[in-house]
Design a protein around this nucleic acid. Structure first.
Length: 302
DNA sequence: AGGTCGGCCTGGCAGC
DNA sequence: TGCTGCCAGGCCGACC
């Protein structure tokens, strides 16, 4: 499931390939991908525009197109973006055809790489069809859209223990539910929430508003460490996540607790247990992450 | 208004 | 063996 590290991996690989190219033509196979616009409208709005920059906000990819148009793409559960895929992948929802890349003209005489002179074919693949590609006309509309949905990025300098302490006050939801809420913190999903809470030695069921300042600092560190490890491993590929060249990430091999039910904790040797928190499968070492008092909900184990 | 839950969607798998 | 039904999970909208 693409979370911040997975989307950042894609952005990092895709940006140098697409920035500066013009979107010549699009093939929209699945109308859901571009809803609420009709396919013809979407295609007309995008076709002919140059890609100025590819950015990431939380789990959104922001294709900044010339003429003040933002293509905000969300991969949701199973989305991937494949460049020049061969053989043709299954579950293709859309294709983008980009023209040759122009070397920057101002100043230096940067050589244009061979690949830049060729056209580029991009396939949007999405088995579960949750992914979206919304168009927002104007920076203001895009800013407003993102601002209303996303809290601070964990890598933002403003994301301090103090900030975390402040935004958790009064929140009675379990801290895991809090981490998954993109309006509070942008980019953390189910995998990295588990990994961050383990690193911070905080139980996912602990009430967010009852975290101490010290725990907020541990949690801030845990989030940043987990996300950084994910980015370093070029993301986690549990099933569908792929790099733009089809290669899998490797972070799934470095999970400390996520998807490790019944296995020993790498820290203390205790057994990792699975439970449901905030409606999500959640993995915990309850020796390292002591549960908050009431133990009424017993885990049946394996 | 904050918290929770169902719906969207599909492949995989448990259970019969 | 083959069918049915349930589950995962990000986000949104409905509901309490």
């Amino acid at each position: 499931m693409p979370e911040l590290p997975e989307v950042e991996t894609i952005r990092g690989q895709l940006a140098p390939l697409v920035e500066g190219r013009r979107i010549l033509r699009v093939e929209l196979l699945d109308p859901r991908w571009v809803a609420p616009l009709a396919r013809a409208e979407w295609a007309e709005a995008v076709s002919g525009r140059r890609v100025l920059k590819l950015e990431r906000h939380g789990k959104y990819l922001d294709w900044r197109l010339e003429g003040d148009l933002h293509l905000l793409q969300h991969l949701r559960m199973s989305g991937a973006i494949l460049c020049e895929p061969s053989p043709e992948p299954v579950h293709v929802r859309a294709r983008l055809f980009l023209g040759p890349r122009r070397a920057p003209t101002r100043g230096g005489r940067r050589a244009t790489a061979d690949g830049d002179r060729k056209h580029l074919r991009i396939a949007i693949v999405d088995q579960r069809r949750f992914g979206t590609a919304q168009l927002l006309f104007g920076d203001e509309a895009a800013d407003e859209f993102l601002r209303s949905r996303l809290g601070l990025e964990p890598f933002d300098p403003g994301f301090t223990a103090e900030h975390l302490w402040r935004i958790t006050r009064g929140r009675t939801a379990p801290v895991k539910a809090f981490l998954l809420d993109q309006r509070r913190i942008a980019g953390v999903g189910n995998i990295y929430a588990d990994e961050a809470l383990f690193r911070a030695r905080i139980h996912p069921r602990r009430e967010a508003g009852k975290l101490t300042r010290a725990q907020c600092e541990s949690l801030r560190q845990g989030i940043i460490e987990a996300l950084t490890a994910g980015i370093d491993a070029k993301g986690a590929s549990i099933d569908d996540f792929r790099h733009v060249d089809g290669v899998r990430g490797s972070f799934q091999d470095r999970f400390l607790v996520h998807r490790r039910e019944g296995e020993p904790c790498l820290e203390c040797g205790g057994e990792i247990v699975k439970m449901t928190v905030a409606g999500r499968g959640t993995y915990v070492c309850e020796l390292c992450q002591p549960p908050p008092r009431k133990r009424s909900i017993r885990e049946s184990g394996r």
